[in-house]
């Protein structure tokens, strides 16, 4: 069974084709991939999606040799996200649905991220916890089934990925800065105890909230007043310390959520799940019960949306995409 996945909820435009649960093609047009081609900046504008979505779909069909009429199911992200951006994907999907008379389903973006671990771990037992960490989200969910997931706690200010991007800007890295900070942190060969110490927001009274705004400001004050060559010399240690502070906070809350819920299975998803230090830390905390998607499936992509659609089809839970897209992420 062939599923066409469509994702356009924020910066990335992505189209994927799945044969059952096997990815045939997963194309993502993002600022990260195109930075090298000169001057392509991140665009939140819906026009950016509109200009790419046709070409991406065409290239998926050409590369796989699958004819558009052979698609059995269309799955499209319909919430949450930027209204204009979502509408491009939804309109494209509905047009395709009408033209070829192919069944369609709307997918919640978060449901898609949770499904991203199922490519490599097809039968993770419910319930499990999901730690969703990206530029726009830092949340812990309890997933009782793919139809029922509840938020246990989330950030009260900045998202973790946003903290990476803003600290990256302070330290002179391009956007998005996550990969650069990780690479710079890897250049630090000393002991973590020799790094500058940054505050990690701790939960009070068992509450599962995250906070990264103070951490950003702490890095800012560490850097301010120092001359650029001194900052450059200390940059690996700074990145290591900052990264560790974020990871400590994420892992501490994951541990607390596991204890409060009596669940030790946990999925790490979202763009920041690419960070290898975070993946290692979570695997250390939850040996054998931490599940992470392949790094290529962490950032927004249509393959996870297609898989969420395929799983809906199997459960007989297809639903028409919602057009009145919510106005916030």
């Amino acid at each position: 069974m062939i599923t066409l996945g469509i994702e356009s909820s924020c910066d990335e435009t992505s189209i994927a084709l799945l044969d059952n649960e096997t990815i045939l093609v997963n194309t993502i047009y993002s600022q990260t991939e195109h930075r090298d081609f000169g001057g392509v900046v991140p665009e939140v504008a819906s026009r950016a999606h509109l200009e790419k979505i046709d070409r991406l779909a065409q290239s998926c069909f050409t590369r796989t040799g699958i004819a558009p009429g052979k698609v059995d199911l269309i799955a499209v992200t319909d919430s949450p996200g930027l209204a204009g951006a979502l509408l491009v994907g939804i309109s494209f999907a509905l047009g395709f649905h009408t033209a070829w008379n192919i069944p369609i389903t709307g997918i919640n973006h978060l449901e898609g991220h949770i499904c991203s671990i199922l490519f490599e771990n097809t039968d993770v037992a419910f319930p499990f916890l999901a730690l969703v960490v990206s530029g726009g989200h830092t949340s812990l969910y309890r997933v009782d089934s793919l139809d029922e997931f509840n938020c246990l706690g989330e950030t009260v200010d900045d998202a973790a990925g946003e903290a990476f991007d803003k600290v990256g800007k302070l330290l002179g890295f391009p956007y998005p800065a996550g990969r650069f900070i990780e690479e710079e942190a890897a250049r630090f060969s000393g002991d973590i105890s020799q790094c500058p110490s940054f505050p990690v927001a701790r939960c009070s009274q068992g509450k599962l909230y995250f906070s990264f705004s103070g951490l950003k400001t702490a890095v800012k004050y560490f850097v301010s007043g120092k001359n650029p060559s001194e900052v450059a010399r200390q940059r690996p240690a700074l990145c290591r310390a900052f990264q560790q502070a974020v990871i400590d906070s994420l892992v501490a809350n994951a541990r607390l959520a596991a204890r409060q819920n009596g669940i030790d299975r946990i999925a790490l998803v979202g763009g920041v799940a690419c960070n290898s230090y975070l993946r290692e830390a979570l695997h250390r905390q939850f040996p054998d019960t931490a599940f992470t998607p392949h790094t290529s499936l962490c950032t927004d992509n249509a393959a996870m949306i297609a898989l969420a659609g395929f799983r809906r089809y199997q459960r007989d839970k297809l639903r028409r995409p919602i057009m009145n897209a919510s106005r916030t992420l």
């Binding site: 950030t155 200010d157 946003e162 803003k166 705004s213 950003k216």
Partner: peptide, 29 residues
């Protein structure tokens, strides 16, 4: 960055409705 813009908004919004959680809209715009 870090000069208190979001904290200003937090104070503003929570004065009207203390239950609202104010988060950074950097990503969501």
């Amino acid at each position: 960055l870090g000069t208190g813009k979001t904290e200003f908004v937090r104070g503003f919004v929570n004065e009207i409705d203390a239950a609202v959680v104010v988060r950074s809209p950097s990503f969501s715009i």
